[in-house]
Design a protein around this nucleic acid. Structure first.
Length: 472
RNA sequence: GGUCCCAUCGUCUAGGCUGGUCUAGGACGGCACCCUCUCAAGGUGCAGACACGGGUUCAAAUCCCGUUGGGAUCACCA
């Protein structure tokens, strides 16, 4: 049994798509599971649409998601000469021929055939012309078998049988001398000894066209595994219309790479009822037997839930590290962060229970990172009433007089106040919350005070008291 | 239109290969209740699916055929 080698072969014509990441992930998982190699190949033979920038974005996306490759990135544009040689080799062996039909002619013939309700495949008119040295623009076509059947053994879908009569004599070298996709893929997969071609099932119909090419070129035919598509909520192929589809967009929205990967692995693959997988577990359990053969709808709500699981369960330090760039981006510098007793890490435990993304954490952290926070006017009017404000002042005085600022002490002081005044906890905690954070929603009131520190806690209560009195 | 693929709760899925243990399990989302200083988190519970029709069989979500529905693909794009 030869070594397992797989590849991910994106074309750099845009950003790295969610669907692409899932394909890359399954390749990566299979390679890691079986101790094989994962090759990254950039299919940039479409020189009009491929950009270096897009290549960088792909590499960045791969790095962010943690899908590391063993070989590459290999660019097809570095191998153009190779494809040409292989194509000419086929020609010299009589397995390919020059075709001088222009694309315009082909186009009109296709239309005619279609309007007559006939097959729109190439009619093969240049097949027997025996052009050995084309004097005009010519493309090289591969002589596809027309008899019998081609059976593709797919690890996910089982055997798929195609009648060879549907096969086209496909162009392997364009008239501009460059190889086409279907040809360069086969040459590369063959030369790179790819043992398993794992790709989206939009390639199923390409497979019977490629198999004879592998054979003609003298390569052994790899095994195939065609992954089901990822759909949008309307069951149409996932696209921009369905919201973000670029991986890096998810990074920006505050998703953790391990969460995205976890969500994606469950889109089309399962291991019993398990939902949350560490990378190690995924690698250990991954197999094609449990890959779904039907398409899956991308569900942003569940992705959020998975992300929340990781935010809540990762080490606080780890979450804090991931959070830092977001805080910087939101405009908080070291001095702002230094205001919090305990630093960034202290923010994580109280805030993460109420956050699904890192952006939520940043938002929740706002009141503790600034000198004076914006006040929700409606909340102030409702909660900072004349009746309660003296109680807040009383509480502040008590806190100030106490040298200790621990939760236990604060709890004792607040409960003392409540009992003396015959109040309910909610009657005091909510105004306190508004005074301290400017909002009606926050972590527990003692956690808020801990994040603020004694100094700012007193300051804010006093400011709120002043404000309320000034208003009357 | 040709060819190919697919079909379990709204969504992701378990089960299907090796029919009975499935009056179909889990998760997201929804709803209700509990907990509670707000919001969450957490806990408990509820609603919710084998596309349809034929077979095969003592027995079918599971096997076979057909229908319907969805998707992919038919380029000198990848």
């Amino acid at each position: 049994m030869s070594k397992i080698r797989v590849r991910f072969a994106p074309s750099p014509t845009g950003f790295l798509h969610i669907g692409g990441v899932r394909t890359a992930l399954f390749n990566w998982l299979f390679a890691r599971h079986s101790g094989g190699s994962f090759v990254l190949r950039i299919e940039d033979t479409d020189r009009d649409r491929s950009t270096d920038e897009a290549i960088q974005v792909i590499l960045e996306g791969m790095k962010w998601t943690g899908l590391d490759w063993d070989e590459g990135p290999i660019r097809q544009t570095d191998r153009l000469e190779l494809y040409r040689e292989k194509a000419m080799d086929l020609f010299h062996r009589g397995l390919a021929y020059w075709c001088v039909c222009t694309s315009e002619e082909l186009e009109t013939r296709r239309k005619d055939a279609q309007s007559r309700g006939e097959s729109i495949k190439y009619d093969g008119r240049c097949r027997n012309r025996g052009i050995s040295e084309p004097t005009e623009q010519a493309a090289l076509r591969f002589i596809a078998p027309q008899e019998g059947q081609t059976v593709v053994h797919d690890l996910i879908k089982g055997d798929i049988t195609f009648d060879n009569s549907v096969l086209d004599d496909l162009i392997i070298l364009r008239s501009n001398g460059y190889a086409t996709y279907n040809f360069s893929v086969v040459v590369d997969d063959g030369l790179m000894n790819i043992s398993h071609v794992i790709r989206g099932d939009d390639h199923v119909n390409n497979t019977p066209r490629q198999v004879p090419l592998f054979q003609a070129l003298g390569f052994s035919v790899p095994q195939f595994a065609h992954l089901p598509m990822i759909l949008g909520s309307d069951k149409a192929r996932l696209s921009k219309r369905h919201g973000a589809t670029s991986v890096l967009a998810y990074q920006e929205m505050g998703y953790l790479p391990e969460a995205l990967v976890n969500y994606l692995v469950r889109l089309g693959w399962s291991h019993g009822d398990q939902e949350i997988f560490s990378i190690k577990e995924m690698v250990e359990h991954f197999d094609f037997k449990h890959v779904q053969s039907s398409a899956a709808v991308f569900n942003p709500e569940k992705l959020k839930w998975v992300n929340a699981q990781y935010i809540r369960n990762n080490e606080p330090q780890q979450v804090a590290e991931a959070l830092m760039p977001f805080l910087k981006k939101a405009g908080y510098d070291e001095t702002a962060i230094a205001k919090i007793p305990g630093g960034v890490q202290a923010l994580i435990p109280p805030l993460r229970e109420r956050s699904e993304t890192l952006l939520d954490v940043v938002d929740g952290a706002a009141p503790y990172l600034v000198e004076s926070m914006p006040m929700d006017e409606a909340a102030a009017t409702k909660h900072l009433t004349e009746a309660i404000v003296p109680r807040l002042k009383e509480f502040a005085d008590a806190v100030e007089a106490e040298p200790d600022f621990s939760k236990e002490t604060l709890e004792r002081l607040l409960h003392g106040l409540i009992e003396r005044q015959g109040l309910k906890m909610g009657k005091v905690a909510q105004p306190l919350r508004v005074a301290l954070t400017g909002r009606t929603v926050s972590p527990g009131i003692y956690e808020v005070m801990a994040l603020l520190g004694k100094e700012r806690t007193l300051q804010r209560i006093r400011a709120a008291v002043e404000r309320a009195w000034a208003r009357t």
